[in-house]
Amino acid sequence: MKAKAPFSTAIAIGFGLLTLLAYFLPNLLGFLRDLLIEWALGIVAFALLIGVVNLLAVHWRKVRSGAKGVYSAVLILSFAVTLIVVAWNKPTGQWSLWLFDYVQIPVEASLMAVVAVALIYAAARLLRRRMNGMLWVFFITALLILAGSAPLYFVQGVDLQGLRSFIANALAVAGARGILLGVALGVVATGVRILLGADRPYSG
């Protein structure tokens, strides 16, 4: 264990154990759990503000340095305009919704479309790798799921959707559950390490 930051470590371990016990002993420590969670939510909300300030500071420095500062200037300008509009028109106001409907959603939807292109490109190049059994299973499964996702007007007589349903609800679910169980075990182990002070994301 690290010997540094003992006070921070003691606080982290203490409050973590209290919250954990409060989940299992709600009658005894329920009030403490609610209190601690409210404190945590307040800290996270304040951290959100700090993060926004950090974001602006980084881009402001980029504007000053001149290295591709145009994009950072657009970001800072957009932030300012959105802040002013939403603060003035409220989040559900007309202009706020206009910004969301005609700026936010199209931009993110376009990024999602690029994700689709990137995934198709990655799937096509998948066979360029040194293929093994698992990669072939992955590739064929992806094709079958795609084929069964929607009725193909030129494909008749083949129950692709039933095949997709079987793969998705039987085979994929089984594998997904196994992975999730392993992830859950990893989460438990990580939580134990944090409560024991071995993993300390806070350097103090």
């Binding site: 198709i120 799937a123 190049r125 998948l126 066979l127 360029r128 040194r130 795609l146 084929a147 030129f154």
Partner: peptide, 24 residues
């Protein structure tokens, strides 16, 4: 559109996969 894009995706993945497999 949903059906058409899935068809195009299948075609592109099969075509690109075959070409890459041949190149490999």
């Amino acid at each position: 559109s949903f059906s058409a894009t899935i068809l195009v995706t299948l075609f592109l993945v099969l075509l690109g996969g075959s070409i890459n497999l041949l190149l490999a």
